[in-house]
Write a protein that binds this DNA or RNA. Sequence first.
DNA 1: TTTTGAGTTGTTCGA
DNA 2: GTCGAACAACTCAAA
Length: 470
Amino acid sequence: MTTTSPIILWFRRDLRLSDHPALYTAAQTGRPIIPVWIHDECVETLGAAPKWRMGLSVEKFGETLKGIGSKLILRRGKAADVLKDLVKETGASTVYWSRAYDPEAIKRDTAVKTSLREMGLKADSFKGHLLFEPWVAQTKAGGFFKVYTPFWNCVRQIPVTDCLPVPTNITPPITWPKTDNIADWEMGRAMNRGANVVAKHVCVGEQAASERLAHFIDAAVDRYKEDRDFAGLPATSRLSENLTYGEISPRALYHAGRAAMERGAKGAEHFIKEVVWREFAYHLIYHTPQITKSNWRSEWDRFPWRDDNPDAELWRQGMTGEPFIDAGMRELYVTGIMHNRVRMLAGSYLTKHLMTHWKVGLDWFSETLIDWDPASNAMGWQWIAGCGPDAALYFRVFNPETQAEKFDGDRSYRNRFIPSGENPHQDAMSFYQAIPRSWGLKTGQKQEEPIISLKVGRERALTAYSAQKA
DNA sequence: TTTTGAGTTGTTCGA
DNA sequence: GTCGAACAACTCAAA
């Protein structure tokens, strides 16, 4: 190992220059840095929308690096093999990356670390994706938390250090290794909905993410606590899209929130608590990785969920006949995201009224969300289905019509995504451009009658829950 | 070890 | 129309 050999900076879901511990540490050595992004085994298995959106992020980050005299080297293959090849080609003696915590990524990274160290290389991972490493928060008994509030009470006492600046000295190597062309990968190929429709709604890259945060702090954080549940209001930060690709660090959100708190913004602590929900999801996925695949509470294994079925297909198509649910499913299809409140309703409706397994919903979200995150989605679906970490009051079944009355009383959200009146909203109409022809929906078509009465659906679910408990 | 208090997000019904 | 109780009892975390 020489002190002048290059450092390979393996980027994954950390596509930014600011507040990047691995990059910052590498830059401080003064050695040449070779930024790399690999279309690896974890990228292969991404759903259509997350893969497409990831591609946009990678492309943008490549431009950013180019702008500072560096370059993003692109390769495709199994991560461990690609990195071994790159080490041989470049004479690098060190590989750095930011830690990931979901089971697939841990498996990949463990293999990478082992094989690189066997070659005598320095291979180190850094914090960066989270405020708190999942093993830091512990109960007094030394275990992990299963309830949010005690988790929050624990981590809120842990100091969060300042954000790191963008390194000023990212030294290029003398010669660059060859790189693939991202266009050849066709990362949007599986977007069989119109990617051009969704593209109007994305916000890509570090600069855009940072402006989005500033705008939220400026315009919305004060009323965040009161307004965040109103689906038609621009009251949320929408930063989940950027966090999941690491275009902004959670620490940037945290400190922006703290600064707002200090000037008396009432909603700011609530905003930080939501950021910490993401931390809690990672705490859970780290300690109970089976959360992505099987019921977190195993007693739910005997619950009579239905597998995928025609009702679930109508749910995916935004054709349940429940306007608030359908609006949410159409928001998802047109914009790639769904308001948090409506995600809960859509999840409750699928798993309770339609008695369909939460995995059916999780799979659809994994396919269609541009802000898809392995930890948050697994936790969210298990929570809403009742088999996840929560007090799990089994009779808590959301009523989409009551919820619409409460959280979309002026119908602005439903009208945005379901055509109504003489001049329907542009987003409602673009749904028909976005959907695949195979769905057979005509422009302007909507489901007039609910596919199941709310009363019948609710009672059917409650009966099944009572039977399970007995 | 036992006890105690609390647990993101709800709905319905009847007074 | 509004408001409180019932829905039922269990798990978690700390004292």
